[in-house]
């Protein structure tokens, strides 16, 4: 599976980037005059995100790396943000993730994070970099856990018009799952995952 992803990823990214630039040319034929939207304090956005969730590896406290044994899964989320100024926005994100174990048992992850974003703009593109943090509710079989989550990442957004942008996100997930209660301490794991998702973002 890892080989497949390694081989397929460049192709998928190439197709997406070509599509984005092609779209610019196509929509660039529009006769309407372009207005450069500038966002400021109080402007808000809502976005819906969906895509691929790639399990990378688990790491123990002693540094040992091990396989997650999970299949690539799916992710979906909703996100609200408010602009502090033209380049900075903060917001909340809640979503869901699924992936499957070797015996096809489903792992469910429900992250709830706050997020700070800095946006570099090069019209008609925005290049947000961001850091999200919060709690991560994980359910597997009859097991459940609530963990700490860090989500650094970056995106490429194309402004379709003043209200809508569409983008591609690359987000690294770092989940710290400590051994708590009666668990032996050597069962602590840091989960490392990669989110590759598409977004539709609405400005209001």
């Amino acid at each position: 599976m890892a080989n497949f992803i390694r081989k397929a990823l460049p192709l998928v990214l190439t197709v997406i980037i070509v599509f984005l630039f092609t779209s610019v040319d196509v929509f660039g034929q529009d006769k309407e005059p372009k207005v450069l939207p500038v966002y400021s304090l109080g402007d808000q956005t809502l976005s819906i995100n969906g895509g691929l969730f790639v399990p990378l590896f688990f790491q123990a406290l002693d540094g040992t790396i091990s396989s997650t044994n999970l299949t690539p899964g799916g992710i979906g989320s909703l996100e609200w943000n408010a602009y502090i100024n033209a380049n900075v926005k903060v917001g909340l994100e809640a979503g869901g993730v699924f992936a499957f174990s070797p015996n096809f048992n489903v792992l469910l992850i429900l992250p709830i994070t706050v997020k700070a974003t800095y946006i570099f703009s090069y019209y008609p593109f925005d290049f947000p970099i961001f850091l999200g943090t919060g709690l991560n509710i994980i359910k597997y079989q009859d097991l459940s856990h609530i963990d700490f989550l860090l989500k650094p990442g970056f995106s490429v957004f194309w402004r379709y018009n003043a209200s809508w942008s569409f983008g591609l996100n690359f987000v690294y997930w770092w989940i710290f799952q400590a051994a708590t209660g009666s668990q032996p301490s050597d069962e602590t794991r840091m989960g490392n995952f990669l989110e590759i998702s598409l977004s539709a973002l609405y400005h209001f």
């Binding site: 688990f58 091990s66 396989s67 997650t68 044994n69 999970l70 909340l92 174990s101 070797p102 015996n103 048992n105 792992l107 709830i112 994070t113 706050v114 943090t133 919060g134 709690l135 991560n136 994980i138 597997y140 097991l143 459940s144 856990h145 609530i146 963990d147 700490f148 989550l149 989940i175 710290f176 799952q177 400590a178 051994a179 708590t180 209660g181 009666s182 668990q183 069962e187 794991r189 989960g191």
Partner: peptide, 25 residues
């Protein structure tokens, strides 16, 4: 909200899910 989430999210539960997955055959 960040503070609440950070405090509440610090590892609630007694189930080593990642450890279980790592050892699933």
């Amino acid at each position: 909200i960040v503070l609440v989430i950070m405090l509440a999210g610090c590892n609630v539960g007694n189930n080593a899910i990642f450890y279980t997955l790592e050892h699933e055959e």
